[in-house]
Design a protein around this nucleic acid. Structure first.
Length: 846
RNA sequence: GCGGACGUGGCGGAAUGGUAGACGCAGCGGACUUAAAAUCCGCUUGGGGUUUCCCAGUGCGGGUUCGAGUCCCGCCGUCCGCACCA
């Protein structure tokens, strides 16, 4: 073996060998137990960034470990290849989105290969290719026939300059992010998935996902936002003929009905709109509401405004009481019925509103002894208590009062108990080119007609231009013109494409099974799924993960699948962060940032290489181009090799937390690679003699590292490997030492596969370490025969003694009392009690 | 406002209610070397005695326990998610 390990030679060599031997092809016909390890597939932006490296290294270690444990592992990779950046590139650089995307894929694939990931590239897919999105179109039609897809008019953010719909994230302070134009609300006919049909199922299903982080489950729970309450109808007193005579409200606090002092409707509510036609003041107020900002900060500070319509509604329980009806800016048309009743004493918003407009505030829930009908103060009481001033509800607690009101409403026919969800149906229409064409045809005579399955895929036209704003599909000269599949008359294709979240809602199925004629084979899918371990960023906690869960359930609902949840275990990894380097620009006062490559980093200071002068070291934050605190994985690989960067990704920080990147850290990893190489180089197969302590250390480490990897606690596994390596280095040559070196090689094989493969050539027993099995352990060696006993007095450690494992309590006690240090500490005091924990400690109480 | 997570050396972090600070990084000292790099050895929570010892110490204040970084209560701080959700 040569003196130094040379990753620039070894990495490429072994990557090629793994490729040629198809080491990581998952065998559908295998009889082994199966394991499906999946990382969220990347968007092909052009370059792999360090966050990808961390994500895929974790998955790779798990996949390789599972293989060593005898599993048939499916570990695939693909590309979430549709999306806006490709169209932006097309507009900015005049390239075709497809060409740009495919080039990026090629580059990033090469980068992934340089990291030596154990991926089954034969299953690679890109969502922008017809052999993927064609199947997606077929599934879309299946879901349509299953009643889970529909069209409706819906408001969108419309950029009048770019002639396009904007996602909410693309609207910044009410303006289009690219054009800067004021965004308009426009009504368009859009396609929707009926995800709300599954709201309850998706909520209930969270309870079965034991392998998911509690945090993600909570986020999804909040997103679905189930609330139970009462929906009831208000009758308008003396309704005008041109106005609706009733409207419905929803409340989660039907118990406070007797505290109602007004009703409020949203500015977009049908009654408000009807009123606006004849009442200019109302119209003006509605306009004013629309102008209000929609950002969180604005909403928080926005004052509550109302417009008294002059209308009154009858109180449902006591029709002799009437309430004024306001149009109010704090009522949301999207939630519930877009109308509420206000109970100021027990709702802060209602109280703010009531105080502003001088409305009555009547207490209906007692605050301890406080039960006066007149409510004082500006803080609503929302705590528990008995109902007061509430007729037939008096004396009930809140829960009982809710039930009583709902029962009464139902028996008297003016309302029903109802469950509301915050979750909305999923709008998937995008007025863009670079996405999956929605497979429908609009015919004047036949209406909306699905494209027949034998005409799928509906492929994107290649000859498009991005010089003019708007959807290229819409203005393409020929593409949209087709004959109606039903009547044969000229008709038009749907020119909207699908939200890219649709593409990522079923790719894990296509990885498991890739028939040409169907999206997937349910039998194969049943063999591989659910994904045993899914790994990705927390930023997908809600949308992607909820949509994928919805698709799985929807496909089950229409009989295409037999699993309910796609991802058995989910892991969300932390970000890779880096400190920032900057100087303050004298003229502008703004910081000027420098990249790590421009910096010489000492122990406590940093200087700029070009002038040797100090720079300010800033906080450790997420890597971003604007702060220049980024590192390029390719450069790291070129300097230190793939194994060093992989090792760094696993070291130190727990994987769910942020990992601070540092030059000294990666240098340390590079040194450890060489240190291992020296260890392996010193392997002596002919050494003899036994080192029992090292044997124990070896098997204990093997067992512990296995546990750590299965728990994804890579940082702990890394620390244990360091410990074992140190112990081996200190040990004298023996057969035990050689065996321990061999064990280390297998332990690091999933983490540093290139180094492991190279060393395996001389240490191993033929073949590839990629095909080797995880080392077996001798259970007898996992327990020590001697243990260290801690001796405490008054709860503090006074001494430690070594004792045989399993020594009886009385002997341990005697041993403890015999200690000189302990006796000194006791200092003649009376021993009142001795607690003995076998094999652990003795605590003497005086 | 609601919900959640977290708080341990100079830094990242270990620690089934049982020896706090494993392991890595940084730092200091030494060996090897003409020298440097690499490598190896030692030290590295604070305060005191300086020898093999003592005291304090896991954001702050209480509590439970023979024993608390860990469990309970109350604060403080940081981060994240959601939010005029009726």
């Amino acid at each position: 073996m040569s003196e130094k390990f040379d990753p620039s030679q070894a990495d490429a060599h072994w990557q090629q060998v793994w490729d040629q031997r198809a080491c990581f092809h998952a065998d559908d016909a295998s009889t082994k137990p199966r394991s499906y390890v999946l990382e969220m597939f990347p968007y092909p932006s052009g370059r792999i960034h360090i966050g990808h490296v961390r994500n895929y290294t974790m998955g790779d270690v798990l996949a390789r470990y599972k293989r060593m444990k005898g599993f048939e592992v499916l570990h695939p990779m693909g590309w979430d290849a549709f999306g806006m950046p490709a169209e932006n590139a097309a507009m900015e650089k005049g390239v075709h989105p497809g060409g740009w995307t495919r080039e990026n894929i090629a580059n990033m694939k090469a980068q992934l290969k340089r990291l030596g990931f154990a991926l089954d590239w034969s299953r690679e897919l890109a969502t922008c290719e017809p052999d993927y999105y064609g199947h997606e179109q077929a599934l879309f039609l299946d879901l349509y026939r299953g009643g889970l897809v529909y069209r409706k008019e819906s408001a969108v953010n419309w950029d009048p300059v770019d002639q396009t719909v904007l996602a909410n994230e693309q609207v910044i302070d009410g303006r289009g992010w690219r054009s800067g134009a004021l965004v308009e609300k426009r009504k368009l006919s859009q396609w929707f998935f009926k995800i709300t049909d599954f709201a309850d199922e998706l909520l209930e299903g969270l309870g079965t996902l034991d392998g998911w982080p509690e945090k993600v489950r909570l986020m999804q729970e909040n997103w679905i936002g189930k609330s139970q309450g009462l929906r009831f109808t208000f009758q308008v007193v003396d309704p005008a003929p041109q106005l609706p005579g009733t409207f419905e409200v929803f409340t989660t606090r039907p118990d406070t009905l007797f505290g109602a002092s007004f009703a409020a409707i949203a500015a977009e509510h049908p009654l408000a709109l009807a009123l606006a036609k004849t009442n200019p003041e109302a119209a003006e107020f509605i306009e004013e509401c629309k102008r209000g900002g929609t950002t969180a900060a604005e909403l928080e500070t926005a004052e509550k405004h109302g417009f008294d319509t002059g209308l009154r509604v009858a109180h449902p329980v006591d029709p002799s009481l009437t309430l004024p009806v306001y149009i109010a800016n704090f009522v949301l048309i999207e939630y519930g019925t877009g109308a509420v009743f206000g109970c100021p004493a027990h709702d802060q918003r209602d109280l703010d509103f009531a105080r502003k407009y001088g409305l009555p505030v009547c207490r209906v829930v007692a605050d301890g002894d406080l039960d006066a009908a007149v409510f004082e103060g500006d803080e609503a009481f929302t705590g528990p208590g008995k109902l007061v001033n509430s007729g037939f509800l008096d004396g009930l607690d809140i829960k009982a009062a809710k039930t009583t009101v709902i029962e009464r409403a139902q028996s008297e026919g003016w309302g029903t108990g109802e469950t509301q969800y915050r979750l909305r149906d999923w709008g998937v229409s995008r007025q863009r080119y670079w996405g999956t064409p929605i497979p429908f045809i609009h015919c004047e005579a036949c209406g909306v007609v699905p494209v027949p399955k034998d005409q799928l895929p509906v492929t994107l036209p290649e000859d498009v231009d991005f010089k003019t704003p708007g959807n290229p599909l819409q203005r393409h000269p020929t593409w949209k013109h087709v004959d109606c599949p039903e009547c044969g008359k000229p008709a038009e294709r749907e020119t909207d494409t699908l939200d890219t979240f649709v593409d990522s809602s079923w790719y894990f199925l296509r990885f498991a099974s890739q028939p040409e004629d169907r999206p997937f084979d349910p039998e194969q899918v049943a063999k591989w799924l659910p994904v045993e371990q899914y790994i990705g960023g927390i930023e997908h906690a809600i949308l992607h993960l909820l949509y994928a869960r919805f698709w799985t359930r929807a496909l089950k609902h229409i009989g295409k699948l037999d699993i309910a949840e796609p991802f058995g275990s989910l892991f969300t990894q932390g970000m890779v962060t880096h400190e920032t380097y900057s100087r303050t620009d004298m003229d502008s006062g703004q910081p000027v940032y420098f990249s790590p490559a421009e910096i010489d980093r000492g122990g406590e200071s940093a200087t700029l290489k070009s002038d040797g002068q100090p720079v300010e070291i800033g906080r450790v934050i997420k890597m971003s181009k604007s702060k220049k605190n980024v590192v390029d994985p390719d450069e790291i690989i070129a300097t230190y090799g793939a194994d060093a960067i992989r090792w760094f990704m696993l070291s130190d920080s727990p994987p769910e937390r942020d990992l601070p990147w540092s030059e000294s850290g990666i240098e340390g990893c590079g040194r450890f690679v060489q240190r291992l190489w020296r260890l392996f180089s010193g392997f002596d197969a002919s050494a003899t003699g036994e080192d029992k302590a090292l044997d124990r250390k070896r098997d204990q480490t093997v067992a512990a590292v296995a546990e750590d990897i299965e728990a994804l606690s890579f940082n702990k596994a890394v620390a244990r490997i360091y410990e074992l390596v140190s112990a081996i280095e200190k040990a004298k040559p023996s057969a035990s030492r050689s065996a321990a070196i061999r064990a280390v090689l297998l332990l690091i094989a999933p983490m540093m596969p290139h180094l492991a493969e190279e060393a395996w050539q001389t240490i191993g027993d033929g073949g590839l370490v990629a095909d080797a099995l995880w080392p077996a352990v001798d259970p007898a060696l996992l327990v020590d025969d001697e243990v260290t006993i801690a001796i405490q007095h008054r709860g503090k450690l006074r001494d430690t003694v070594t004792a045989a494992k399993g020594l009886p309590k009385d002997q341990l006690e005697a041993l403890a009392l015999a200690s000189e240090k302990v006796q000194r500490s006791i200092d003649g005091a009376e021993v009142r009690k001795v607690i003995v924990v076998p094999d652990k400690l003795v605590n003497i109480v005086t």
